[in-house]
């Protein structure tokens, strides 16, 4: 096994996770459950293909993708913050809605129930293994940037305060509602970028193409104990396992299904506290009347 090709493949697989997990960290640190990452990614992927298809420019696609994720995240925010709906239920609804809406529009715009036509993408120089894609580089730096935002900026301080102790934050003049709206919107746009990368990398949208990646991202958030850098490392770990599975294909050393399970099993172990208990933000998922 060539270590360079292993590493590059791992990073390419990790990029969608890195975007989505960074988004998940922000929303969850603000106290809003992020079971919606899957839906945000899917809507971002579809909107990016739609935009690229009609404009011919992947950059327009990126903007459309961000907008798609933003729309879904605002639905999520209005339902959970304004209407105080159960965040888990809304999460399930958003994911189903994203599947439904992308399927319906796939049919409406492209007259297909499985995939869009081929669209333009970034890069394409086969000698650099996908590293001429600006989104890939953005994905590599997104976690450190989020860490800076969360730990070093006033906004990040507010996010953490709102997620740990909303009443205290409110009492010193922080608008809990506004911080949460912004945090959820950021999570929607970032997760959508993960979907955008995926779709433009494959040059098309296919039905349910995110295939559970949003849930791997949420696993990384939990396994990384709600810290952007540790969540990013978890993303890399999960991506490494996947790369291993791909490179071992055909050797039958370990059934691929068992490698698929690794992120999920590690998350359960982390939650059960076998090695250093994962403790969520105190106000996560709580609705105050």
């Amino acid at each position: 096994m060539n270590p360079i090709s292993f590493l590059t493949q791992m990073i390419r697989i990790a990029v969608p996770y890195l975007f989505a997990a960074s988004g998940g960290v922000v929303a969850e640190r603000a106290g809003i459950v992020s079971l919606t990452l899957e839906g945000f990614m899917l809507s971002g992927a579809f909107a990016a293909v739609l935009g690229t298809n009609y404009s011919g420019s992947p950059w327009v696609g990126v903007l459309c993708g961000i907008l798609g994720g933003l729309i879904f995240s605002l639905i999520h925010a209005v339902a959970t913050i304004r209407y105080r709906a159960d965040q888990v239920v809304v999460g399930v609804a958003i994911n189903l809605l994203a599947i439904g809406v992308t399927r319906f529009f796939l049919k409406l715009f492209f007259a297909s129930s499985s995939n869009s036509p081929r669209v333009a993408g970034f890069g394409g120089n086969i000698n650099v293994a996908g590293f001429d894609n600006p989104l890939l580089w953005l994905g590599i730096i997104v976690a450190p940037v989020m860490a800076f935002v969360i730990y070093k900026t006033p906004f990040g301080l507010r996010v953490r305060a709102v997620g740990e102790h909303p009443d205290a934050a409110e009492s010193v003049g922080v608008s809990v509602t506004r911080v949460r709206y912004v945090a959820v919107a950021i999570s929607g746009m970032l997760a959508a970028l993960g979907g955008v990368y995926l779709a433009l990398d494959q040059h098309q949208f296919t039905d349910q193409m995110t295939a559970g990646r949003g849930f791997i991202a949420i696993s990384a958030v939990i396994f990384g104990r709600w810290d952007p850098i540790r969540a990013a490392l978890a993303c890399l770990l999960f991506a490494a396992a996947e790369t291993l599975q791909i490179q071992l294909q055909g050797s039958h050393a370990i059934p691929s299904q068992f490698i698929e399970m690794i992120p999920y099993a590690l998350t359960i172990i982390a939650l059960a506290g076998v090695v250093g208990r994962a403790v969520p933000p105190a106000a996560l998922g709580k609705v105050e009347d």
């Binding site: 189903l96 809605l97 439904g100 809406v101 399927r103 319906f104 796939l106 049919k107 129930s113």
Partner: peptide, 8 residues
């Protein structure tokens, strides 16, 4: 697929 939307 319209029904998938309506479910959500």
């Amino acid at each position: 697929q319209m029904m998938d939307v309506l479910q959500g």
